[in-house]
Structure formats: structure tokens, C-alpha cells
């Protein structure tokens, strides 16, 4: 799934030029959907690898890595805030598989939204056109979530089948 998401982002979504304020990004799903029971250090190293691949292939010069890494730190909190579920220490069962599709969608949209805020904020580095920045974040998050929907369905069916 990681490879599929990376290819989808690099070869399709990044090549799309629908509008300046509409830039869907689904690669954060790789970090968002990593098993919650994994140790944070492994999640962080996996995220670093994804960020570096994105930076090298898309010329981000650190932008992709810098906006992916905070997701590792905040994902447990966002999960708790959006779904009320907490990851207990020593929990070895797949927490994501026990979530309903609606809960998973809320969690994913929140994470995508936060990522898009950091990404476009850092990319623009200016509040000269705040409306355009907000529109870019909102519409891009919305489109990313729409594209993420079938991926999430597939993800859920895979982990439930396991």
C-alpha cells in the first residue's frame, strides 16, 4: 500500500494541475495508517524514509519530511480527540481495525487537515493572501479525503480479513 500511495502521489496527483488552490496529497495516509501498536521510534523512522523519498523525488528539500514528522507525534492525541480511543501500553491488537469506518474517516481527515495546514503554511511562508491559503488548505484537504475514501475502504477490508 505504501508503494501504491507513493506512486499515486508522485506520478499522478503531483502531475495534476487542476488549480493553484487544489493540490490533493494522499501520501500522509502512509503515516496515518501505520499500526498504532508499533513503537514510536519505528513509526518515526518509517516516516523519515517516506519523507526523504518524497523530498528526493519531488524536490521538496526537506519540506515533505518536516511536515510528515509532526504527524507521528500527534497521531495518538488526534486519535483520542476524534474517536475517544486511547492506545494502551502493551496493546498488541490492531486498534485501527476496531474502529468504524466513520471514526477512521474523522481521524484521517483531521490528520490530513493538519498535514495540509503545515505543508501549505511552510510552502507559502507568507500571509499576504490569507484567503487563498485557507482555500488551498480546505479544498485540498477535501479532495485528498475524497481520494482517500476508496483507499480506506480497501485498507479496512484488508485488515479485517487478516
Amino acid at each position: 500500500m505504501t508503494v501504491v500511495l507513493l506512486f499515486l502521489q508522485i506520478f499522478l496527483l503531483d502531475e495534476l494541475s487542476i488549480a493553484m488552490w487544489l493540490r490533493p496529497m494522499v501520501f500522509p495516509l502512509i503515516v496515518v495508517l501505520l499500526p498504532m501498536e508499533w513503537r514510536t521510534i519505528w513509526v518515526m523512522l518509517a516516516t523519515l524514509a517516506v519523507g526523504v523519498v518524497m523530498d528526493v523525488t519531488l524536490g521538496g528539500a526537506g519540506l515533505y519530511t518536516a511536515t510528515l514528522l509532526p504527524l507521528v507525534v500527534i497521531r495518538h492525541w488526534i486519535l483520542y480527540i476524534t474517536t475517544g480511543r486511547r492506545v494502551e501500553s502493551g496493546d498488541q491488537s490492531s486498534l485501527l481495525s476496531r474502529m468504524t469506518l466513520r471514526q477512521l474517516m474523522i481521524y484521517v481527515v483531521a490528520m490530513l487537515g493538519l498535514h495540509h495546514i503545515m505543508f501549505f503554511g511552510l510552502e507559502t511562508l507568507s500571509f499576504a493572501a490569507p484567503l487563498r491559503l485557507v482555500a488551498t488548505i480546505l479544498f485540498s484537504t477535501l479532495l485528498s479525503a475524497i481520494i482517500a475514501w476508496p483507499i480506506l475502504r480497501l485498507f479496512i477490508s484488508k485488515i479485517v480479513a487478516r
Binding site: I41, L63, V73
Partner: peptide, 18 residues
Amino acid sequence: YVLVLFVVLEGFALWSYA
């Protein structure tokens, strides 16, 4: 150590971007 690693990696990524 996880927090320290995060701060180091994030700092390096931001520095590289900057």
C-alpha cells in the same frame, strides 16, 4: 529519546528546507 530524535530530525528537515 523519541522526543529528542523528533526534534533533531524536524530541525534538520526545516534547516534543509530553509
